[in-house]
Simulated assay, not measured.
Amino acid sequence: MKVLLTGASGFVGSAVLRRLRAENLDIRLLLRTPSAALEADDVELCYGDLADPASLEAAVQGCQALFHVAADYRLWVPDPAAMMRANVDGTIALLEAALAAGVERIVYTSSVAVLGFYPDGRPSDEEAWASVDDMIGSYKRSKFLAEEAVRRIQRQHQASIVIVNPSTPVGPGDVKPTPTGRMVRDAALGRVPAYVDTGLNIVHVDDVAEGHWQAFQHGRPGERYILGGDNLSLASILTRIAGLTGRPSPRLRLPRKALYPIAWAAQGWVRARGRGTPIVTVDELRMAAHRMYFSSAKAEAELGYRHRPAEEALRDAVRWFLQAPPR
């Protein structure tokens, strides 16, 4: 079976690639630019862009399966339209090209970012309703609209498309890093002196990759499955990282509202420079108003999904960041 994988140069995509390799599949990778790190005898490299439909049509030819993991994952962007083109328009073009080429099975990587929150505070599941107006920031809006488009395509074609919604993956290989990886790295290096009162669902990136394969094997077309781990407060996450590094845990809890002027200034500074990432963004503060807790019960029941303790995910991430070359 020939499988097309997008996003293999990214954090989650590279983990999915490791998992697919274990199945001895015929793997084709869609990349935007050449990557010496991904050149190997057991994969075929092809080049294209989610903004170039012709390149996508060529990439899917001869494939029976597609794992669409690629996405522009940034919590702040100077040009939201570019993110929409990649995450929404690119996803539509890729899936339409795949179905036209006869691809038989598709796993689409969405995000828990598209889910709503329950008024009683219990962890969100796949039925936690939300609208696009509830989405904070360009990334969440783009992933919400992309998942809606995937559902529409699945219904129109009665296609074998399964959606997975990873929570907050951490672990080795977060090269860029992702926004969460940046937080783990900075905490491991003692660069996080304070925190806000929020919470995250922490999952090992390799468990997310395993969940992708389980969804491919067992997922029901048109359904979505949360691939998550342990629900932890941010204070607890930072305390665990401190325990792994021997550094003191941050004790200063800051009110979110007090950080908004800093966020506005940081975004303005990055815009003026034309490069870089704000140390904190307005959207991050708005999102922190909710504890982002989720349940993977559906994936556990239907896919056989399991996750290791968050401590293992954080340990592997911290170890990798402390050994990685400085960036």
Score class of each variant (00 low, 15 high):
Q217N: 06
R253M: 10
T281W: 03
G268H: 11
P248M: 08
P248G: 10
L234Q: 05
R251S: 13
D283K: 01
P261S: 07
P221F: 06
G228P: 14
P278D: 00
G246T: 08
T239P: 02
P278L: 02
W264S: 00
V270E: 00
V282G: 06
R275C: 03
V282M: 07
W269E: 03
L238E: 14
T277K: 13
G229K: 09
G211N: 07
G243H: 05
V280L: 08
I237M: 09
G219C: 04
Q217R: 15
W269N: 00
L232C: 06
L238I: 14
T281G: 02
G222H: 13
T245N: 08
P250A: 04
R256T: 10
V270Q: 05
F216I: 08
V270M: 06
W269D: 03
I241K: 08
S249P: 14
L244I: 11
I279A: 09
W269Y: 11
I279W: 08
H212I: 11
H218V: 01
L244Y: 04
T277N: 10
R253N: 04
P255M: 01
H218P: 00
G243W: 09
A272L: 15
R253G: 01
P248Q: 08
Q217V: 13
I241L: 08
L234T: 04
A288K: 00
S233D: 12
Q267K: 08
R224D: 12
R220T: 13
G219Y: 07
R286P: 00
A288G: 02
L244Q: 10
R240E: 15
A263R: 05
R224I: 02
K257M: 09
G219N: 07
R271H: 07
T245P: 12
L259T: 00
D283V: 03
V270L: 01
G229Y: 09
E284C: 05
T277V: 15
Q214L: 15
Q217P: 03
G229A: 05
